[in-house]
């Protein structure tokens, strides 16, 4: 009797057949597919698109958003959100320009990143241990950090001194065939990939978003892990800010205004679920690139800036519908 019952269960498990297999494949490779289609479309639209110079440009432009997206992915995996990344990037941009005037370059940069981590820790503590909503806490941090950046810069762009020149030299040169900021982004993505897929820490982050109770009942300190993702996100956001200073040579408090939304969009286009537990590093990278290619092709095609925002909004919706619309067929 038991074997027959099991046959029933197993058949049930496999029910759905072709359509579901297709949808599973799409869920897995959908983001990549959208990206490839977009690249093909872009290449047919403009000869300038597939040139080395243009590709390097896109990579360099997206490096800040990409680095922030890594932190955001970790946050979103735990069912959280971090609205403060754009402001923390501004803080990173201003503080790095400010501090390298007076201190050793590496000392200054280390301090800047620690500052980002500390801001993240503050948000993370309130969210994870005091159980306050991430949306509100990081919204407050977003406002406060921007204000702090404005105070530090007195509202004026800060020109770093000679050490700043060294930073700018790094920011505008190449290594291993990539612009340095893009190389840093790729290295951080690779690191994140290993952490998320091959370490206890990474799997627990994913597990917490999937079912926090299960993790807690396995004897794991869930709040500490949740807090840690905001630390990571804060640190990475200031690194993104340093990159802006490195590329432009000035530290400005207006860096990254509204960029938290681009970052969230990139992560979501990459297929991560805001309900937590679902999302991957490679897909997030592709999500970032999709965002970059869309902006780039519109620039190349001469779409006016205001129009670009409307198209961008529409394209994000289409991408997310293609990603998540698959769930409509899951029943």
């Amino acid at each position: 009797m038991t074997t027959e019952a099991q046959t029933v269960t197993e058949r049930e498990g496999r029910a759905g057949g072709g359509m579901q297999t297709f949808m599973r494949l799409f869920r897995q490779f959908g983001t990549t597919g959208i990206f490839i289609l977009l690249v093909i479309a872009a290449a047919t639209q403009s000869d300038a698109f597939l040139t080395e110079r243009n590709i390097m440009n896109v990579l360099r432009q997206m490096s800040g958003i990409g680095i922030m997206a890594i932190g955001m992915l970790f946050v979103i995996l735990t069912r959280g959100i971090d609205l403060s990344v754009g402001s923390l990037a501004a803080l990173g941009a201003v503080a790095s320009a400010f501090l390298i005037q007076q201190y050793d370059l590496w000392l200054a940069l280390t301090f800047v990143v620690l500052m980002g981590a500390a801001c993240g820790a503050a948000s993370g503590f309130l969210i994870a241990f005091m159980k306050l909503p991430a949306f509100v806490i990081t919204l407050a941090m977003m406002t406060a950090a921007r204000g702090f950046a404005l105070i530090m810069s007195n509202g004026q762009p800060i020109m770093p001194g000679t050490d700043g020149a060294a930073l700018q030299a790094w920011g505008t040169s190449f290594a291993l065939g990539l612009p340095n900021p893009a190389l840093l982004m790729v290295i951080l993505f690779a690191l994140a990939f290993v952490v998320l897929n091959f370490t206890r820490y990474g799997r627990l982050i994913k597990a917490i978003g999937s079912n926090p109770d299960a993790v807690r009942l396995s004897g794991i300190n869930v709040p500490l892990h949740v807090m840690s993702v905001y630390v990571i996100s804060g640190a990475l956001a200031t690194i993104a800010g340093v990159i802006v200073t490195a590329r432009s040579g000035v530290g400005s408090a207006s860096v990254g205004v509204g960029q938290e939304l681009d970052v969230i969009a990139a992560v979501v286009i990459g297929g991560a679920s805001l309900m937590g537990g679902r999302g991957g590093v490679i897909n997030t990278f592709i999500g970032v690139m999709i965002l970059g290619v869309i902006g780039n092709i519109m620039n190349l095609a001469g779409v006016p800036g205001y129009h670009q925002q409307v198209y961008l909004g529409a394209i994000i919706v289409v991408a997310v519908v293609l990603q998540h619309g698959t769930q409509l067929f899951r029943r």
């Binding site: 370490t199 597990a207 999937s210 079912n211 299960a214 004897g219 794991i220 679902r278």
Partner: peptide, 22 residues
């Protein structure tokens, strides 16, 4: 059920005692 639905069977079984490097 105290399982994490997005994780694999093996991860769920060893959730509390995953090795640092998997």
């Amino acid at each position: 059920m105290a399982l994490a639905p997005d994780l694999s069977v093996a991860e769920n079984i060893f959730l509390g005692e995953l090795p640092q490097a998997i």
